[in-house]
Design a protein around this nucleic acid. Structure first.
Lengths: 261, 261
DNA sequence: CAGTGGTCTAGACCACGCT
DNA sequence: GCGTGGTCTAGACCACTGT
């Protein structure tokens, strides 16, 4: 039997599979998707506990082991975090552990003592209309309302990153330079707590480039300094693109770190 | 009970844990490490099948489920590959699927039709002595014997990558420019089939740089062209570093792709 | 001590690949 | 049809966290 009996799944119905098996879909994946939908719909908010495995098993009418495997996959994708003895929690960007989960620029020499956090300066933040490029990246239509921002990150007083951001206007309605500057945590923690938009995954395209005059000025470097260009699209639940970000990184005393396996 | 009874593990003994639990180590991790050791010692060679889950369960005196969880972890780390209905195989770099598993330089426009493979040209290949830097990266002593090579990769006739390689002399004894040039597959497939050295993981440090005169000449570009510098250390089983590679990538029509999650 | 996730087992059945 | 990995279950027990 490849589907949950409706009578045993009072709060959620799974699409029944025909007895013949033209397309087989494991139960635990169906459960995973149901949990995912609950996350998406905000049934449990970031940093909250979700129901225990036994509760979920009862709710979906499956065994604990099946729920466990569903949660395993979500935890592997950093959507959930398991804490033994306490419960399973909705993952959040606001955790102390990793300040910048998606920033891979590391100091060349690992100063053992805690590195002081980056200083952030908002250079610009305005409402605008999506160009064709931006619209394509954010799955919008050309001309739709967006928010555009530029900021500079400095480490130990040295301007190191200049970033341009493009955000869809609708979900981020009410975002202002002032609120951006005032927020103490990372941008993604800001999006999460202020707009309920949780970034789950990102794709980056990395190149070596030279800055234009303005970028060079912001980083206080000559225009002949090669920089890392990092173009990122960040996605929420359901692979919906919610941020386009183009960063320029100085790499003379830091490097972009990547592990291949 | 946290350890396998010796009587039930005839071909391998697991370290018994004291009844008090000062340090608890799950059984499946112990099994995983035993399988890992067998891989390391070459009991099963790349692309070969390993024994079935039931056989391994009998051999280690545990249930199939425990072996399964051990294999799951190794498969997640790309050390093993499961194929339903056929068995579990030792992973290899020689698979057709992904030509270059560790090369993340992608064409900007995805030509749907198969891209023709890169052309490879060995520029240099010589025996030498490890400098302090190289020795540190490869966990050797300064002055130990190494092999040094330089090659150029071209895509569609355009020289795109120039790479310098440093390899420990001992495991790669007998490597020559001729054998390098003659081998049809990727470098890592070559290391695997010709020297039994299987790379399992790699760390990369990425920067933006300008080429020196010689590098610019090899890539047929001006010295003012910013390039991606990719410094990679590749590891075999047991986190032993076995290759240092410094690559320069042209990124005007290709980009380094990375997925963050 | 109760409740949570984590481990381990044994057994049944399913999907897949080969012969 | 057989053997492989893949799914699902039910139950026991362990390790960890809070009260």
């Amino acid at each position: 039997m490849n589907s949950v009996l409706p009578s045993e799944a009072p709060t959620a119905s799974l699409a029944a599979q025909p007895a013949a098996t033209p397309s087989f879909r494991p139960l635990y994946q169906q459960i995973r998707d149901l949990i995912l939908r609950s996350l998406q719909q905000g049934e449990w908010k970031p940093a909250e506990v979700i129901p225990s495995e036994m509760e979920l098993a009862a709710r979906f009418g499956v065994s604990q082991g099946t729920v466990r495997k569903a949660i395993d996959e979500l935890a592997a994708g950093h959507l959930l975090v398991r804490r033994q003895g306490r419960g399973t929690f909705v993952a959040t960007h606001a955790e102390q552990q990793v300040q910048y989960r998606f920033l891979r620029l590391m100091p060349d020499v690992d100063q053992a003592d805690a590195e002081q956090p980056a200083q952030r300066e908002i250079v610009e933040c305005k409402r605008a209309r999506a160009t064709a490029d931006v619209a394509r990246a954010l799955a919008l239509k050309t001309g739709e309302s967006i928010i555009q921002a530029r900021r500079v990150l400095s480490f130990g007083g040295i301007p190191t990153i200049v970033e341009d951001l493009w955000l869809p206007g609708e979900p981020f309605r009410g975002l202002t330079a002032h609120r951006l500057s005032a927020y103490p945590g990372s941008l993604y923690a800001f999006f999460e707590s202020e707009f309920g938009v949780r970034m789950v995954r990102a794709d980056e395209k990395i190149r070596a480039v030279l800055p234009d005059v303005q970028q060079a000025a912001l980083l206080q470097i000559p225009v002949s300094t090669p920089l890392l260009s990092v173009e990122r699209i960040a996605f929420t639940y359901g692979n919906r693109p919610m941020e386009l970000r183009k960063g320029l990184y100085r790499t003379d005393s830091r490097h972009y770190h990547n592990r291949l396996s």
